[in-house]
Design a protein around this nucleic acid. Structure first.
Lengths: 246, 246
DNA sequence: CGGCGTTTTGAGTGCTTTCAAGACCGGTGG
DNA sequence: CCACCGGTCTTGAAAGCACTCAAAACGCCG
């Protein structure tokens, strides 16, 4: 179950089925909480539903709220003075967005798809963290995981050639799905070539060329808009970590 | 005061002067602790001194210990199968190294200078975190700060041209010194051109050329080995975030 | 059936890398 | 004391990979 997605509908949240709404296998902030605690949490949080392309918050906004993504996918971006932007990460159901020790958010959070979120005022969250140590520990774990993922991304952007970066991105999509326990053959990929390029430190043309190359090699298919099917995961991961050409 | 650097010498640690050993203005893990708590912490931790180039731990080692850097500078690196490496961060006095929720460390930690560290077994740390909530909160804050810094680094590596990356690195050195409350005119820079290149996703030659260019423009001096003096911080930060050429 | 945003593809340029050689520096041993 | 040695840094020239600019194709929506 998701950390912050305990809502006023706590009765729902206590049942296995209700959790399925936000992904029953999702490992969110509330994962370690018991039913009684969830009651208290749900009294503080509120649920909201937003359409695709909504801005959840912007870099520089006062960091007064913390969100937990229940459904949908978000991108986190930082903007440079010259207009270029860097995607610092994508977020999936179960992820916490906007927790920081700074006064302001350090990136934009924007939805790629329609999404439902659980929102909590920072003072209320702090109160809850004080009351439920296992929740604070969970938040720390999530933070460490994000840090590791960002370091991994740094390796990708800093040291891999273009096609390897795109391959690594596709593998990371697969990983994200696996964590959520999904099993469909095709992956949802709501990000545009430009989004992917901004994530990988490339241009959208280079990303497009890589996709074309992979398609021609029979490594993937795009059965419909914003879906990918990876046909040769071994080839892709081989390319991603350079375990092919030497 | 430093989080994990409470040692068996707790009496020392309680006094302002003793803290100066590990940098009195350093904001480490034990920062929020009172003297009585430090007693308990120091009973668990041990201090060690290591020479330059020591390996504190390697990627893949069992993550059974957590370290706090008291003095010295460390680099954290990830190795790619093809031998290239990426520096995911440098660590300065007051930083915690090796806390993870995974079973193994996800990067190498290596000392650039001689250093003193405070070492704590993971089970003991967990026990302490359970007993001292303010310590756990502090660890969470440090983790969020690291995450923000790594995201910033992602922007640098992904979206800035070579010279801007080097400029950004120099500014980050300045920042790190400011946080430690130092005031000397020159900065310690124990990292080699290769270290810097691996941090910035460049080659050592490109880093060298950037330094030469900055020197020729009068933006910096290197009065002695492993020292830099920034003569025109404005020019460097302008270049770093692209606020000059447009 | 238009219109608009996204994606694809092409051609040429350029920044960074690669490869190579020499300079510099500190440490070591004769 | 000085010559030698290994590692680091600098500099040059050439090559390559990704970028830029440009235009056409595609697909979705109204």
């Amino acid at each position: 179950m998701n950390p912050l997605d305990a809502t006023r509908l706590s009765a729902e949240l206590r049942s296995e089925e209700a959790c399925a709404t936000c992904g029953s296998r999702v490992a969110g902030l509330c994962k370690p909480m018991d039913a009684a605690s969830l009651d208290e949490i749900s009294a503080e949080a509120e649920r909201l539903t937003l359409p695709a392309r909504s801005v959840v918050f912007r870099e520089g906004d006062s960091a007064s709220r913390v969100y937990s993504l229940m459904t949908g996918i978000a991108k986190l971006t930082r903007l440079l003075p010259d207009g270029k932007q860097q995607v610092v990460g994508f977020r999936y159901p179960g992820d916490v967005i906007g927790y920081t020790s700074r006064r302001d958010y350090s990136f934009d959070a924007e939805l790629l798809t329609g999404a439902t979120l659980c929102r909590l005022d920072r003072p209320k969250l702090d109160k809850l963290l004080g009351r439920f140590p296992q929740m604070e520990r969970r938040l720390l774990d999530l933070c460490v995981q994000e840090l590791t993922a960002t370091q991994e991304q740094l390796v990708t952007v800093g040291r891999r050639p273009a096609e390897a970066r795109v391959a690594a991105f596709l593998i990371s999509l697969l990983e994200a799905r696996r964590r959520r326990g999904k099993v469909e053959r095709t992956l949802d990929m709501p990000m545009t070539r430009a989004d992917i390029a901004d994530f990988l430190g490339l241009t959208l043309e280079t990303v497009s060329r890589s996709f074309t190359a992979f398609r021609k090699r029979g490594w993937l298919r795009e059965p419909e808009h914003q879906k990918v099917e990876l046909l040769d995961v071994a080839a892709l991961s081989g390319l991603a970590d350079g375990t092919d050409e030497v």
